[in-house]
């Protein structure tokens, strides 16, 4: 439901970085533990950019899995359940390594030829 807000925030940052240069592609990284629906993000992006100078700008979403490191096993395991526990030993002495990303990774700016 907040995907539209996220897209507005993405556009704000992209617009500031681009400083008027044409942007062809925006890469964002969204962690598994974030409640972002990729289709909804794309829909919001289209809605916001249509008819603007970002109309041809592609939004590429990288899904980042939720990975925890277990102190007992000394291994990294991937979560598919929201409980922060080691998938190997089911212990709770874990540290979150990834999965909370909500990041604009990069923007592709068209080259200007003089």
């Amino acid at each position: 439901m907040h995907e539209l807000s996220l897209c507005q925030a993405i556009l704000g940052t992209v617009d500031a970085r681009a400083a008027g240069r044409p942007v062809r592609r925006v890469d964002v990284r969204i962690g598994h533990l974030r409640q972002v629906v990729p289709d909804s993000l794309q829909f919001s992006w289209q809605m916001l950019t249509e008819g603007t100078e970002y109309g041809d700008c592609e939004l590429v979403v990288e899904h980042v899995p939720a990975v925890v490191h277990c102190a007992a096993c000394d291994v990294d395991t991937t979560l598919d359940w929201p409980i922060l526990a080691c998938a190997a030993c089911e212990g709770f002495d874990v540290e979150l390594r990834s999965g909370e990303e909500l990041q604009i990774a990069s923007i592709d700016i068209a080259q200007e030829v003089r």
């Binding site: 925030a9 909500l102 990041q103 604009i104 990069s106 923007i107 592709d108 700016i109 068209a110 080259q111």
Partner: peptide, 11 residues
């Protein structure tokens, strides 16, 4: 295109 690293939180 030139890929420009942003590495900034969306929020």
């Amino acid at each position: 295109v030139a890929r420009v690293a942003v590495l900034e939180s969306i929020l």
